[in-house]
Computed example of a mutant assay.
Amino acid sequence: MSEDHTHVQEFFGARAADWDRKFPADGPAFATAVADFGLRPGDRVLDAGCGTGRALSALREAVGPSGTVLGADLTPQMLAAARQAGRDAQGTLLLADVARLPLRDGALDAVFAAGLVAHLPDPAADLRELARVVRPGGRLALFHPIGRAALAARHGRELTADDMRAEHNLGPLLAGSGWRMTRYVDEDTRFLAVALRTP
């Protein structure tokens, strides 16, 4: 495992047990983002970097009993917290690195990724891996329950032009990784970028 991955695992592993208690108000934002994502009954969807699985019930509701819901995370403690919360009833949990997913090409209709993009060690390559497992025309949602400015303020930082999630940076990053951005929302109450898998 790379140094980046070890750092991510240590960071989230140490915080897993308290994660849901720390952000209790995020639930409705997850549900709204999933509802806006345009999933259909029967779709096969991956929650990439699923953490404690806060999106899994909304994803299950969107794809219905005939759909497939997978949650992949690099951190065993996060998946343990998801199981403890009973969220494994909504989908299959995988201990997996989103940079090397144990899925065949084009296996999925969609990927939902909450708070993931800022933690990717190699964003272009990792977004290409997400593109690999999604069929052409499939969808990607990059979500965060608060917007860029609110998140920067929470961490005592200023927003800068080189922020990867700024529209002028994210659009080309996605375009170079097999995606075409179709929607971009950055408000205090949420960040949501939606992209289509290009053929």
Rank of each mutant, 00 (worst) to 15 (best):
A16R: 07
V98H: 03
V8C: 03
T68Q: 15
D88P: 03
V194Y: 02
M181H: 08
P28C: 11
E158A: 15
D4K: 10
A31R: 10
P136L: 06
R132G: 09
R139T: 06
G138N: 02
R128Y: 01
R15V: 05
D47F: 13
L70W: 09
D122I: 00
L151Y: 14
A125L: 15
D18M: 00
S57Y: 00
R165A: 10
L59G: 04
R197A: 09
L103F: 13
G64I: 11
W19V: 02
A193L: 06
C50H: 12
A195V: 05
A141R: 09
A195I: 04
V111H: 07
L56C: 13
I146E: 14
L173P: 09
D73F: 08
R100V: 03
D97R: 07
P24H: 10
A89N: 01
S177N: 07
V69W: 02
F112E: 06
P145Q: 11
L101P: 14
R104M: 04
D122E: 13
E187T: 10
D186K: 05
A58I: 00
V134W: 10
R60Y: 04
A153Q: 15
G53D: 06
D162T: 14
G115K: 08
E3T: 14
A141S: 12
D188H: 07
F30Q: 09
L94N: 05
A141E: 11
V8S: 11
D4G: 10
R148C: 08
D88C: 00
R148V: 15
G176A: 15
R87N: 01
W179R: 06
L59Q: 12
G171E: 11
A82T: 03
C50Q: 10
L151M: 14
A110S: 14
S177I: 10
L59N: 04
A14E: 14
D122K: 08
A195W: 02
A31Q: 12
G42C: 12
D105H: 07
